[in-house]
Each structure stands twice: as structure tokens, then as C-alpha cells.
Design a protein around this nucleic acid. Structure first.
Lengths: 293, 293
DNA sequence: CAGCGAGTGTTCGATTTTGCACAGGGTGCG
DNA sequence: CGCACCCTGTGCAAAATCGAACACTCGCTG
């Protein structure tokens, strides 16, 4: 069945009982209404209305159409109300994604945000696969490293994640802690499996430590964290997470060159919605939590 | 909400996932689809789809629309199936109207017809007010007297209703029965309250019987019938109904000049439908029942 | 890495749709 | 009984819509 507009026209004729009344209600000329009805009846091969001097009265088929189109009209107006109101309220679903290493920092913040908006359901997706905003897979993405440069995305700086070099106390009991820069050559390290050396501190490591001293390598940041905790070696950890553990010792203080910028990324189509804006402002309010030395 | 066609377009885009696919399904150019979506989104003030190089993926609002429009599509196709199939089968409602005096003859015939078509529901309307076919108030009308001459109505002769003059036996016991034409002047009569004398036999009565002998007058034919039954006077009754009562005596045999033609009238728009045709042929098959002397 | 296919988006001319003016007819009221 | 009003119906011009062609982007494959 094609041409839903003609059904809508017939619906108003059946409701009003006259072509002119329907034309007024639809905001079109009555000639248009007549043509729509004629076309629709011809396609259906049945008369929808009895024409007479006082107007159009619906036949059985016309009354059947009236009933169906009535509910359709109701459903469509409800739909438009939902869609129009959707942007205004913080409700529905909100999909957030980030690299998995940020989970421990993000989860409590997201939980707090959800508590402030009970109508909202949050999906926090982490994974090796980068969820793509332009396919609608996520509403807000938190990305680290170089500023993302997708044309349809709106990118804003979130905060700067400071890294320092840590070792577990258990490591110090076995190997001691390096006290001077030269001591580093005699220690063992854990590091990212990034031969491309994207993170700034992995380049630093390559420059200051012989490759054979890197004894534990993984692509998963949480694995590296746990390797440091277990005393497998010295490694870079985000300051925010490390200060909360008393089994760690800071070997080298944070350096500006190690800092990784973190970005808030949204698709341009969703950036204006109240839902996304509320989350963004909530996230930015939490920056100071993570701005520790 | 106006422009249901744009909703239909958006529905197909959400279903297909691409503009081109929706354009194929709709049989229009893909530029048209893009314009529809743009217009709809602008009116709604919300994005329905995320645009990317591989197609369009529905946002929350778009998926909401998909669900609503899906059911709408189903209901519309069911509706068109019903309407297209309606003419072919004898089902639904069938409104028949006639002058009320024909009820006793018509009701058993209509009941039999209904029994042959269980899907059909018959409304047999009688009333002083003439139901108008061109307003869709009835599908089939049974009219007596002069041939109806409405332009949009298709009229065909049904049968010729014979009248004769009857009196109740109780009347005969009190006043005797007229045996010769001259005796009529001494008897009492019941007659229609038609000063215009539409029925042919009421003109006959005026010519052969003094006005003061007409002692019972009514505009309701059933009242007149009962007046004859009660012995109030001699009166014209249809032969078909009178022969079934053994308390009546025929005073004068039917005369051709008293015969009233009866017509089957349908509106031209409904005349072709199987439902109406079935009733018409069924009615015509019953003529012989009423063709009694 | 270059070519190819699929898909989006935009512009311009053609076609369809729409609106306007007017004619015709029925109904009701004074 | 006539008149005024409301409704339907129809040609014609204007406007909005649609379709064809082209440019561009992305992802896949040999």
C-alpha cells in the first residue's frame, strides 16, 4: 500500500463528513481533497464515500478506514510527542564507551550520574574494538592520546591523565628501588606491547632503559597494572589510581611529558541533546578528583 | 502531525538501513528519500538517523518511529485487503428499507437470505421517513407506487402487488356482505388518509362510495389492516397477506387497476457489489410466493 | 595501492501536484 | 417562491516536488 497521505485525507473526510471541512482541517484546497479521494478509491477499486449535495458520507469501507486511520493518527501524534520531548529530558538510554583501563575511575562517576537521573539507563561499554560514534554505537566516547579527528565528531579536552613510575613494595624488598637515574639500567620493567610506542612514556622507556630489562609486556593495561602490583617490575601507572594503593612506592614523580590527554567525544547529531550535555557537565565536574599529584 | 508519507519513507529507511534501499523499496529516487528524511527531522527537531558512508542507522527516535510505523504498515495492508475483498464476498452489513406495510412479507425472505449468508448482518429499517439511498442510509430500498426517478439510483421492477377488497367475517355477521356493486353504497369502509389519493384503489373508492361511508381512516397501513380484521369496515388489502387469514371474506376480486407496482431501488455505487446483487436475485426468486390470486 | 562498487548528497530541468476561480446544484429560511 | 449559503466539481496557471546526472566518500579486493 503506497501513499499514506491519501489515507490521511480520506480519514479527515470521513471524520468531517464534507470535503470542504476536511480541506480546512488539512490546510489544503478542497480540490486536492477530491483528487486524493478519487485516486484512493480508484486504486482500491471500491467506493469509500457516497457523494451527495450535503457532503460525503462514508460507506462500510470508508468507516473501516476511519477506524484504522483514527488509531494511526493517535499513534503518530504520540510518537511525535515522544520524539520532540526526548531531547528535553534526561531519560532513556545513554551509551558511554572508553578504553577499558579507565573503568575503575569512570564507573563510580557514572553510577552517581545514574542515581541523579533515575529515568536513565546507562550502558558503559569497554572493549578492544573501538565503538564508532558515527554508526550510533555510542553516545559519548572517552578517548585517550592524540586528539581524535573525525569530521562529524565534536571533541573537547576532558582532563590530562598524569602518569608516574611505580613499583610494588614486594619488588623493592627483592630488588631495591632505583634512587638515581643511572640505577634504572639495573632494574626490570613492565611495559605496553606497543612497538609503535604511541604512549609518550613508552618512548621514554625505550630511550632510558635497555630493551632486555623490560621483562613483562602486555597489550592490556589492566594486566600491566596487576603485574606492577605483583612485583613483576617497575611500570607507569596513572597517578589517580596509584595513590590509593599503599603497597606501591613511587619511583619517579610525574613528568609533564608523560601526561596523556583525555578527550570527550560525541557525535555532532547527539551533542546538543540534554542527555549528553548533562553527562558531559557531570563528567567535567569530576575532573578535580583525578587531578592529584 | 502532517505528511504521513514522510513517516512512511523514514520507516523504510529504518528498515533497510540505507537510503538507496529504501528508495528501491518505495519506487522513488533516492534524492526524494533524503529530502523526506531531512524535512521530517527538521519538523520534529530531532535526528532520526545517524548518517555515515555505509548508510543510515536509526537513532533512538528512529527506532521508535520504526516500531510505530511497522504496526501502521501492517494495519494499512490489512485494511486494503479487507476493502478490496469486501466487494467479492457477501458479508458485513446490508441495510434494507421499505414502507412498513411490507414487513410481514419481507421479514421471512430476509431471514432466509441471512441464513444462507451467515457472515451477513441485515438491518431492515422501516419508518415513516424515507431513507435516502444517496446519503448511504440504505443499500437496497423497496418502494411502491410510481417508479422512483432519482438520477443516481438504479430502479428495476420487483413485482406487482395485487389488492382486493376484504371484510372480516365478524363484519358480515353484523352488516352482511355486499353482493352487487350497488350494495357498496350501504356499507362502511376503512381507507387511507390520502386526500391526494395516491394509491389507485383509493381513487376508485372515492368514485364508487360516498365519502360519509368511509368510517375509519388512517395513514398507517397496518392500522387499516387491523381495522378490517376487527370488523370496522370493508377495505383494500394485499391478496398475499389476506389469503392467509381465514377470518376474512373477499368482497371483490382483485382488479388490475388496483395493482400497485413495487420497485427495487439501489444506489448506482452499490448496485454492482456482490452483496447487493445476491440480495436482489434472492428477492426476485421469491416473487412467485406473492403471485397468488 | 589502485581500482571498483556501494552509498550519500547536491544541482537543475521536467513533471506532477496544488491552488485558484468559477460553474452547477441542493437545502433551508424568510 | 425566491434568495442566500454551502457544498461539490472542473479547467488552467503556478508552485512544489521529483528524477537524472554528477561529485564525493568509504571500504573492500586483487
Amino acid at each position: 500500500m503506497n501513499s499514506w497521505d491519501e489515507i490521511r485525507t480520506a480519514y479527515h473526510v470521513a471524520r468531517m463528513g464534507t470535503v470542504s471541512g476536511a480541506a480546512d482541517a488539512l490546510g489544503v484546497h478542497h480540490a486536492t481533497v477530491i483528487r486524493h479521494i478519487d485516486a484512493l478509491e480508484q486504486r482500491l477499486g471500491a467506493k469509500l464515500f457516497q457523494r451527495h449535495a450535503r457532503g460525503y458520507t462514508a460507506t462500510e469501507a470508508g468507516e473501516d478506514l476511519l477506524r484504522v486511520a483514527q488509531t494511526t493518527d493517535d499513534q503518530f501524534s504520540q510518537l511525535t510527542n515522544r520524539i520532540k520531548g526526548r531531547g528535553a529530558e534526561v531519560a532513556g538510554e545513554l551509551v558511554v564507551t572508553s578504553v577499558e583501563s579507565m573503568g575503575p575511575q569512570l564507573v563510580p562517576v557514572l553510577a552517581e550520574f545514574q542515581a541523579q537521573h533515575p529515568q536513565l539507563s546507562i550502558r558503559y561499554l569497554t572493549g578492544s574494538r573501538l565503538l564508532r560514534l558515527e554508526y550510533g554505537e555510542a553516545h559519548v566516547a572517552i578517548r585517550a592520546g592524540n586528539p581524535p579527528d573525525q569530521p562529524d565528531n565534536v571533541v573537547q579536552p576532558f582532563f590530562r591523565m598524569k602518569f608516574a613510575m611505580y613499583a610494588a613494595k614486594s619488588y623493592g624488598r627483592r630488588h631495591g628501588f632505583p634512587e638515581r637515574k643511572e640505577d634504572l639500567r639495573k632494574h626490570r620493567f613492565v611495559a605496553f606491547d606497543e612497538t609503535g610506542a604511541r604512549a609518550p612514556f613508552s618512548r621514554w622507556l625505550r630511550d632510558h632503559v635497555p630493551a632486555e630489562n623490560v621483562v613483562f609486556v602486555s597489550g592490556d593495561s589492566r594486566v600491566l597494572e596487576n603485574a606492577v602490583y605483583a612485583g613483576a617490575g617497575i611500570g607507569f601507572l596513572p597517578v589517580y589510581g596509584a595513590v590509593q594503593r599503599d603497597d606501591l612506592v613511587r619511583v619517579i614523580d610525574p613528568d609533564d611529558s608523560w601526561t596523556v590527554p583525555v578527550w570527550l567525544v560525541t557525535h555532532v547529531d547527539l551533542h546538543r541533546s540534554a542527555k549528553v550535555q548533562a553527562l558531559l557537565s557531570h563528567l567535567k565536574a569530576q575532573i578535580k578528583r583525578w587531578d592529584v599529584e
